[in-house]
Design a binder for these strands. Structure first.
Lengths: 153, 153
DNA sequence: CTATAGTGATTAACAAGGCAATCAAATGCA
DNA sequence: TGCATTTGATTGCCTTGTTAATCACTATAG
């Protein structure tokens, strides 16, 4: 029996990492985050805090479990992040009146100002991306990603 | 036709987080990683270590800078991960002969066995995804992501 | 009403992400 | 040859990711 080292074995082989969806999603995301992180570093704010800020601004007083889901964060991370952001005066937290386990988070004026300060740059980046990537492909990609999010394996 | 698609308040506004590409990429990735992480937890291995293992297996003796690029890790993270994986006997590291700054990493038999142990499950997951998502959309998504990776903003 | 289980949020402990500084080997140049 | 510069890798410091355990409060059964 000659050893077959790089051939298909009974267990088979994996796809090339070039066609691995998790890796491709990660690599694509890095393309976007590099300039975005640079933009946010001016305000000493992480990409996670930026996501939280946007979600809270978008959906008004909102409970933490919902923020976590929409900003793709786990609750333990969110706890720490909210504490820091509240200390920085970007957010407000108040415990619920009916159910005192819940707390509702809303954006402060300072938080709104921080968003305003980055809107122009953010939209510029988006426009540049749309130009280089193509509006058609952009929308198609967003549609496919939205479809993928809904799948449960 | 009916005016602006997107109404602007004084100072402007951001896109909805539903159409934010970085967030969409993250959410879509979560869909995939949930079952994958569960699979890997059997072997006490993180998704990062799994990526490293696959890259090293795929590209033979390879230097760390290259691993970092292909597995989407920063060098400092990789240093720690490789140290742990070497301790676990999944990888081998040897200093380069020409350039003694470089070190070349290769997979061990134990590492290869770990991959073999998960190939079936991994391919099953991929097949299920392809079935639920559609082969056509799948390939289109991979093509779009590959295109996006190449853009420099 | 009390014991119990369930839910939202937090804490603890450790792995990994991210940035800056550093080390060691190699390279370029006067 | 000397010495600054560059490059591959590491370390330190802090934040975030991840899991399990816990706390505070609510809802439910007996």
């Amino acid at each position: 029996m000659t050893g077959k080292q790089h051939q298909e074995r009974p267990g088979g082989t994996l796809r090339s990492t070039h066609r691995s969806l998790p890796i491709a999603l990660l690599r694509a995301r890095e393309t976007l985050m590099e300039p975005l992180r640079e933009m946010l570093s001016d305000s000493q704010i992480s990409e996670q805090k930026w996501r939280v800020l946007r979600v809270v601004e978008e959906d008004g007083p909102i409970e933490q479990t919902m923020i976590a889901e929409r900003a793709c964060l786990l609750l333990p991370s969110l706890t720490r992040i909210l504490r820091a952001m509240e200390t920085d005066g970007l957010l407000l937290r108040q415990t619920g009146t009916e159910d005192r386990r819940k707390s509702f988070v809303s954006i402060s004026d300072k938080g709104r100002m921080l968003i305003q300060r980055h809107i122009a740059k953010s939209n510029d980046l988006f426009a540049e991306l749309e130009r280089k990537f193509g509006r058609e492909d952009m929308n198609q990609l967003l549609d496919l990603l939205e479809k993928l999010q809904k799948i449960r394996l």
